[in-house]
Amino acid sequence: MEIETLRDVLDWTRKFHEKLSQCLSNSVDKNSDERARMVMAYLADHEQALAKVIRGFESTGDEDALNTWFNEYVNKTPVLQKVHSKTPFANLNASQIMEVVADQHQQAIELYRYLARRADIDSAQEMLEALLSLEEHEIMRMTQSTNRFSDM
């Protein structure tokens, strides 16, 4: 997928969350560790919810912000360096699963941070900062919630 505008970044982010949710969901029944299955099911639902939030940004975002061009910046920095669809979630324990998911989110966070620093339009910078804040808070929330599974 070629990313040229902020709208494309949002589209990529939504698809990223949907694909991660699908990968987790597809592995739930294949993992023999009950705690890992619970974590995967929780994370799959959470990723689906994040995809819906991103869809909201896409549909209600400021048109000037959504049409801001970022292709020269994105072409210099790979969007996602590790592909989650190749991760063997079925063979991982709960903490390893969370580590992989956190790494995936961290890459998205780094992209938002990178683009927010380079945004020329205030509305685009504000949207990217909102996305950055959303991803940072959601990864903290997911980590805390999955840590509770360890307490069980």
Rank of each mutant, 00 (worst) to 15 (best):
A102N: 13
I97R: 04
D122F: 05
R35S: 04
T5P: 02
F16D: 06
D103P: 02
H84V: 12
M127L: 15
Q22W: 07
T87N: 05
Q107R: 10
V83E: 12
L134F: 15
E47N: 09
A124E: 06
I109P: 12
G61T: 02
H17I: 02
I54H: 03
S27I: 11
R7D: 07
Y112D: 06
T87A: 12
V53C: 11
A119R: 00
K30P: 06
H84E: 12
S85W: 09
D62L: 00
V79T: 09
S145T: 15
I3P: 02
R118G: 07
I97Q: 06
Q48Y: 15
D29K: 07
L128M: 13
I97D: 08
Y73Q: 05
D29H: 07
A41E: 12
L115I: 11
P88T: 04
L6R: 00
N147Y: 14
L50S: 14
S85D: 11
M98H: 04
K19C: 00
S85A: 08
V74Q: 03
E138F: 13
Q22M: 07
R117S: 13
E110F: 05
Q107P: 03
H46M: 14
S59C: 09
I109M: 15
P78I: 01
L43Q: 01
V39P: 07
I139V: 15
A44F: 05
Q81H: 09
A124F: 03
E126C: 05
F57D: 06
I139T: 13
G56N: 13
L10M: 10
V53A: 13
H105A: 12
D11C: 08
E58T: 09
Y42H: 09
D11I: 14
E4G: 11
E135I: 05
W69C: 07
L134C: 11
K19H: 01
L128Y: 02
L111P: 01
D151H: 10
P88K: 06
V83M: 10
M1C: 11
E135M: 12
H46C: 10
T146Q: 04
T143W: 01
T146E: 05
A36P: 06
H84N: 06
Y73I: 05
R55M: 13
T13H: 07
D45Q: 15
R55G: 11
I97F: 09
F89R: 02
E129R: 10
Q144R: 13
N71S: 08
E99R: 03
F149W: 03
R141P: 04
L92D: 05
G61C: 04
F57Q: 00
L66N: 02
N75C: 06
E58W: 02
V28L: 07
V101P: 00
Q81T: 10
A94E: 09
L50D: 14
K52H: 12
Q96F: 03
S145G: 11
L50A: 14
Y112E: 06
T68S: 05
R7S: 08
Y114N: 10
Q104G: 13
Q48L: 15
S123G: 00
N67G: 06
L132Y: 09
L10C: 11
T13S: 14
T143Q: 04
T5I: 01
E135G: 05
G61R: 01
A44R: 06
L24H: 01
E47V: 00
D11G: 08
L24W: 01
D29N: 09
D120F: 02
